[in-house]
Design a protein around this nucleic acid. Structure first.
Length: 365
DNA sequence: AAGACGGGGAC
DNA sequence: GTCCCAGTCTT
């Protein structure tokens, strides 16, 4: 028997999926059945590369703070980034604001109802354009996200890498072919729920799966080998040595502007290296940069080592708290803020770890 | 075509 | 530790 004899006829896929959706799917999410394109868009941006459980509170907070696109468009960068703080992939936040302001002003608040026009907006790619098109406007575009790659790779036994150009093309074509074009929104929601609840990445529930009689991966015992990805990430290690400069009741912070991790977030004056630096070395470098003047400062404390594992970088570093007797002349692009104002700015979680410890230990900041 | 971009949960 | 998550953008 050949694989093609086992494989599910393509026209049976949607009916089986929708039957499962109707009878067995009780996954609930606040944006499910939502028709307001603004809220759909918001949920989709938040959920890019982000698990539903992680994004849930952020979605609720955003909807509460900004009930419509004009409210979001009028908000300050600072406030919006603070609300996004901790969610990661901060470019999403910058693009969210840019697109909100564009739609609010240039389109007078009317959300585009066309796939190509949606895709031309900042932060909206093929997936998000398909999601908004189908959920808000019932247009026949199939979503292709991590769930869809996984479900289709397994059910149809496709070994083409999902992160290759060929794979994206192949899976997108198949997804469009399988789509129930009469009810694209319902279908798209169903296949993503199915991937999240049944056809999970690890330990999928094959024994109760509606496709088990036809799933190529299951029948050939290859469920754990699909889907295939070809690229493997390399991890870069970086050392961040932060100077927490205090003068009276103020702290120096600066915004990260480089095209790098944590762009647009705030931090303390930083000395980065590819190895761990001794405290004396850090102080020397800071002096050379004129951040510190000899005899005009005092080291108040040196934090323990902090570490944070990111997907593609390992961040290690520490925080040196320094009391200044005189404020530095050059502002070096710093902003001096009172400790109570610190809470208005968005910081990377690496720094929040430290701030949290500090608050607990010494009720600082 | 390949890399960069966060953070957290599951195993 | 490793993998993955309702992906997108830049080079």
């Amino acid at each position: 028997m050949r694989k093609s004899d086992l494989a599910l006829p393509k026209n049976k896929f949607a009916p089986l999926l929708l039957k499962w959706n109707k009878e067995k799917n009780n996954r609930q999410m606040p944006w499910k059945g939502e028709k307001d394109p603004y809220k759909i868009w918001l949920s989709e941006i938040i959920l890019q590369q982000t698990r539903v459980e992680q994004g849930l509170n952020y979605y609720n907070n955003f909807v509460k703070a900004f009930p419509d696109i004009h409210k979001l468009a009028k908000a300050s960068d600072e406030k919006v980034f603070k609300l996004w703080e901790g969610l990661g992939y901060y470019t999403r936040c910058r693009n969210l604001l840019a697109t909100a302001r564009f739609i609010s002003k240039e389109l007078k608040g009317k959300f585009p109802d066309d796939y190509e026009e949606l895709k031309s907006l900042k932060g909206i790619g093929p997936y998000t354009a398909a999601a908004i098109s189908s959920f808000a406007f019932n247009l026949p575009y199939a979503v292709v996200d991590g769930n869809v790659f996984r479900v289709l790779a397994r059910v149809f036994g496709i070994y083409t890498a999902t992160d290759s150009t060929e794979g994206k093309k192949l899976f997108t074509a198949l997804a469009d072919e399988l789509l129930d074009k009469k009810q694209p929104g319902l279908y798209n929601q169903a296949i993503m729920d199915f991937g999240a609840v049944i056809c999970k990445p690890a330990t999928p529930l094959c024994t109760i799966c509606i496709f088990k009689k036809n799933c190529v991966a299951f029948l050939t015992n290859k469920v754990n080998e699909l889907p295939v990805k070809e690229k493997k990430i390399t991890i870069r290690k970086r050392w961040f040595h932060y100077l927490v400069l205090e003068y009276k009741n103020e702290i120096a912070i600066q915004q990260r502007t480089a095209k790098d991790i944590w762009q647009d977030l705030y931090q303390f004056p930083l000395i980065e290296a590819n190895t761990e630096l001794a405290v004396i070395n850090i102080l020397q470098q800071a002096t050379k940069k004129k951040w510190l003047v000899k005899k005009d400062y005092e080291v108040a404390s040196v934090s323990p080592l902090f570490k944070q594992q990111l997907s593609h970088q390992l961040i290690a570093g520490q925080f040196i708290r320094i009391q200044l007797k005189r404020q530095a002349k050059d502002n070096n692009g710093w902003v001096w803020v009172t400790k109570s104002k610190m809470a208005k700015y968005a910081f990377p979680q690496f720094i929040n770890q430290y701030l949290k410890e500090k608050r607990v230990q010494q009720s600082l900041f």
